[in-house]
Amino acid sequence: MKINDANGVEIDSEMSIVFEDGYFGLILESWGPKVRNKDYNKALEVIIHRLKLSGLKRIEIFLASSGIRKSLNNMNDRRIKNHVDGFFYIDKDSAIDNRLNISKSQKFFDATGKKQVASGNGTKRILIHAKDLNSEDAWMQILDFNYKLPLKVANISNLKEKDPGKYLQMPAIKPEGQINPLRITKTVTVFERDPKVVEWVLFTSYGKCENCNSDAPFISINGEPFLEVHHVVSLSAGGPDTVDNCVALCPNCHRKMHFSNEHEDLKSALYSKITRLKKYNC
């Protein structure tokens, strides 16, 4: 069995849902030799990311290659540990970081057992176990998710120059302004948004504006490409807070969608370009 990425492209890495050595979970077959299961690392990141977005907080990983299973009969001896209690806390670390930690731990094992020095293969056959996923249907719901991998951007550079556009005519008299502006209290209605919808849309954008295709203008303080999630049909107009009504936009395009005199044409272009969007008549 294989899974697809968010673009519908099959990830080249074999996996299966099994009950093995007393544990129910997902087997991810090892990488190699040559090009067999060449997308092992990508598949592992996708799986961890989807488990995280499903609400799971921690998983267990066990080595499951045939040689190690013969040499180490006890499952606890084959547990890949990242924390003192033996769990990988996927709610705290990114999918990439978890995958790297799993790979590092695997290198301390070979076909005969555990070693003092890391020198082995970091892409061995593993069993991924999650306590709450105790049926094939539960795992299939995870594997059927349509999420892209998280994007880690080192730097964003070489941005194309933007057209300056038309400037407003400067007033003839320079305004004085206000040294102590008057404070006004206003009542504002705010809609509660689903953070999982925001996270999904941002991840599936791969750090690029879904309108102009430009890279995010900068990296935010949490290390992620900065984009804003826009509701194509606004919440105030009755639009739903769902992934088929949301897009990831750079701040410039986001303002265009709200304030440009061409915003209806821009909206129509989004529907033509992004296939997941659904037209809502609100």
Rank of each mutant, 00 (worst) to 15 (best):
M1H: 14
N4H: 13
N4M: 11
N7S: 12
G8Q: 05
E10S: 04
E10C: 01
S16H: 05
F19N: 07
E20P: 05
G22Q: 12
G25Y: 06
I27V: 14
E29H: 12
G32I: 08
V35W: 04
N37A: 14
D39W: 06
Y40F: 13
K42M: 05
A43T: 15
H49A: 08
R50F: 07
S54E: 10
K57P: 04
K57E: 15
K57H: 15
I59M: 11
L63N: 02
I68L: 15
R69Y: 07
K70W: 07
M75N: 07
R79M: 07
K81M: 11
N82I: 12
H83Q: 14
V84W: 03
G86V: 09
Y89D: 12
Y89T: 07
I90E: 11
K92T: 02
K92Q: 03
R99S: 02
K104V: 12
Q106L: 02
K107R: 15
K107Q: 15
K114H: 01
K115D: 10
S119L: 12
K124Y: 06
R125D: 07
I128R: 05
S135Q: 04
D137F: 07
D137T: 15
D137G: 01
F145P: 03
F145N: 11
Y147P: 01
P150F: 06
V153T: 10
V153H: 03
N158E: 11
N158S: 11
L159I: 07
D163I: 09
Y167L: 10
L168T: 07
M170P: 03
P171M: 04
L182V: 14
I184C: 12
T185H: 05
K186N: 02
T187P: 03
V188K: 15
R193G: 12
V198Q: 09
L202D: 01
L202I: 06
F203W: 11
T204F: 00
S205P: 12
C209K: 13
N213V: 00
N213T: 04
D215H: 10
P217N: 05
P217I: 08
S220R: 14
S220Y: 10
E224Y: 14
F226P: 00
F226H: 08
V233A: 03
L235K: 11
G238R: 00
P240V: 08
D241C: 09
D244S: 06
D244Y: 11
V247A: 02
V247H: 04
V247I: 07
A248F: 07
A248C: 09
P251K: 09
C253D: 14
C253H: 08
C253L: 08
R255V: 04
R255C: 01
H258T: 02
H258M: 00
H258K: 00
F259S: 02
H263A: 03
H263M: 09
S268Q: 06
K273W: 04
Y280L: 07
Y280H: 15
